[in-house]
Amino acid sequence: RQGFVPAAYVKKLDSGTGKELVLALYDYQEKSPREVTMKKGDILTLLNSTNKDWWKVEVN
């Protein structure tokens, strides 16, 4: 499932696989259909980080 999360809630990881991955630093509950819920410690695939406030991710 793809959607947006606050950029301040995730940290980029060095995956070494060519995929950009991020680590969820905090729990986040989606507040609109365009967002996704994540739990602290989740590893997500980063799809787009051009917006400084909201990053598009895919929940694996």
Rank of each mutant, 00 (worst) to 15 (best):
S32P: 04
K52D: 10
E20I: 15
V10L: 15
L13C: 13
D27A: 07
Y28E: 00
T37C: 07
T45V: 15
V22F: 07
L25C: 07
T45A: 10
F4K: 03
W55M: 03
P33C: 11
V10N: 00
G3N: 01
N60K: 12
V22I: 07
A7V: 06
T50F: 09
L21Y: 15
K12A: 07
M38E: 00
L47G: 01
V10Q: 01
K39C: 10
T45P: 15
R34K: 12
L44M: 13
D42I: 04
L46F: 03
L46H: 01
V59H: 15
L46Y: 02
R34A: 12
M38C: 05
E30L: 08
S15N: 14
E30P: 14
W54C: 06
W55I: 04
S15W: 14
W55H: 02
T45Y: 12
V36H: 04
R1W: 06
A7L: 02
V57N: 00
P33D: 12
P33T: 09
D42K: 03
W54V: 02
K56Y: 15
P6M: 04
N51C: 09
K40N: 04
V10I: 07
L44Q: 01
W54S: 03
K52C: 10
L46T: 00
V57W: 00
L21I: 09
L23I: 15
R1S: 06
V10M: 06
S49E: 13
S49Y: 08
N51P: 05
T45E: 09
L23W: 06
K39T: 09
Q29T: 15
E30C: 14
L21D: 03
T17R: 10
T50K: 11
D53V: 15
G18D: 12
K11S: 10
R1E: 04
V22P: 01
D27M: 03
E30D: 05
L47P: 00
T45G: 08
A24T: 04
G3E: 01
G18A: 12
G41R: 02
K31R: 15
A24R: 01
K31P: 04
Y26P: 00
D53P: 02
L44W: 04
P33M: 09
G16S: 14
D53T: 15
W54Q: 02
K40W: 03
N48T: 07
L46N: 00
E20N: 15
Y28C: 02
K11W: 09
V59M: 10
E30S: 15
S32E: 08
G16Y: 12
L44P: 00
G3D: 00
G16C: 14
K52G: 09
L25M: 09
E58V: 08
G18K: 11
G3T: 02
P6H: 02
K12E: 05
F4Y: 14
E35Q: 12
K31L: 09
K19R: 14
K40V: 08
N60E: 11
N51L: 09
F4C: 11
S49P: 05
K19L: 13
R1G: 05
T17I: 12
M38H: 00
E30Q: 14
K11R: 14
K31W: 04
K39A: 08
K39V: 08
R1A: 06
K52L: 10
T17L: 13
N51M: 09
Y28I: 02
V36W: 06
Q29Y: 14
L47H: 04
T37R: 07
T17P: 14
Y28H: 04
L13Y: 09
S15E: 10
V22E: 00
K11E: 10
S49W: 10
S32H: 12
S49D: 15
D53N: 14
L47V: 10
V59I: 13
Y28D: 00
K52E: 10
Q29A: 13
D27I: 02
G3C: 04
E35A: 06
G3L: 05
D14E: 13
D53M: 15
Y28F: 07
Q29D: 14
L21K: 10
S15V: 13
V57A: 01
G16H: 15
I43P: 02
E30H: 10
E20L: 14
T50L: 09
N48L: 08
N51A: 08
K12D: 04
N51H: 12
A8K: 15
K56G: 05
S32G: 11
P6V: 03
E20F: 11
T17D: 14
V59E: 09
I43G: 01
D53Y: 15
K19Y: 10
W55S: 02
E58Q: 11
K40Y: 04
K19H: 12
A24G: 03
D14G: 15
L44I: 06
D53L: 15
D14S: 13
T37F: 05
K12W: 07
Q29E: 14
L23M: 14
Y26D: 07
A7Y: 03
K19C: 12
E35R: 05
D14H: 13
D14V: 13
M38L: 08
F4I: 06
V5F: 01
V59W: 08
M38G: 00
D14L: 12
K12R: 14
P33F: 09
Y28M: 01
R34W: 15
A8G: 10
K56N: 06
E35Y: 06
P6I: 04
N48F: 07
A8H: 11
Q2P: 04
W55V: 06
A8L: 11
K31V: 08
K52Y: 08
K11G: 06
P33E: 11
R34N: 14
L25E: 04
N48V: 08
Y26S: 08
F4M: 08
E30F: 07
F4H: 05
W54K: 02
R34L: 14
N60H: 14
A7D: 01
Y28R: 03
Y9S: 08
G18V: 10
L13S: 03
P6R: 04
A8S: 14
A24Y: 01
L23A: 05
K40S: 07
N48P: 03
R1F: 06
I43S: 03
I43R: 05
K39N: 08
G41Q: 02
G16K: 13
Y9I: 06
A24S: 05
P6L: 05
L47I: 14
L21H: 08
V59N: 09
L23E: 12
A7E: 03
Y9Q: 04
A8D: 08
Y9T: 06
K40E: 07
L25Q: 04
Y9V: 05
V22D: 00
K11L: 14
Q29C: 12
A8Q: 12
A24W: 01
Q2H: 08
V36P: 02
K19Q: 12
P33A: 11
